[in-house]
Amino acid sequence: MSDSTVIAHDGLEAGHHEHSPHLHHQFESVEQQADAGNFAMWLFLLTEVMFFGGLFTVYMIYRNWYYPAFVAASHQLSVKLGGINSVLLITSSLTMTLGVWSAQLRRKGSLIFFLMLTFLLGVVFLGIKGVEYKEKFEKHHFPGANYSLQSFVNPASDPVAVAAGDKPLPLDIAQRTEVYFSLYFAMTGMHALHMIVGMGILLFMIFRARSDAYTTGHTAFVEYFGLYWHFVDIIWIFLFPLLYLINRH
């Protein structure tokens, strides 16, 4: 394969695995440890898939049940902000890949640079998410006791609904927009929570990378975190069209 190169392991070069300082006692060889770690990380992501899978199931059912309400409610979201966030997250995925690459080539400076860039992109993403959330709170589109149907029963009162060309919904259908926003906040909230956890780990890695923790041949932690960060990206790749782009024409 021309698109990648194989690393020669420290352990292989040294001939004897006892010499690798990164080998945990329960493993026989560095390869066994690397395989086990990689597999464990994928299994963890498998549990994450099932975790979000529950939410996607709920989404699938209600989108079909309450399609008109989902359309009107979805029109309240800004495609522009959502699109920017998509690109931001994809870019942070790229910088994370480059971070892993730097760690593998033992370049400390560029590793820290890319980790910080990834962190910053995450901050901007969450900032934009915060702006979107704030707008929803102000318009009382957050589900619960204060939920307001104003934008859906009387779209003329709401410039966003006017711009989308929404027609007034009958009361019983308009009430179902709350289900959409319940899902919107549950799904993007869970996603944001995963990002916050990830950014905490990023800070920890930046701190540790300064004392050469990942640039002396033991890159596993950075690689596993990369897998997690890409996974969070994948979730957003699905959330964006499913939440923002319902019947936009």
Partner: peptide, 29 residues
């Protein structure tokens, strides 16, 4: 287990925040 996890989280959110995913009065099933 993760599916149970998200389900319980939704129940907790329904009790605390009042989201309407399983609430029949709000259209939930």
């Amino acid at each position: 287990t993760p599916v149970l996890g998200i389900t319980l989280i939704l129940v907790v959110l329904e009790r605390t925040v009042g989201i309407g995913i399983f609430d029949p009065t709000k259209g939930g099933d």
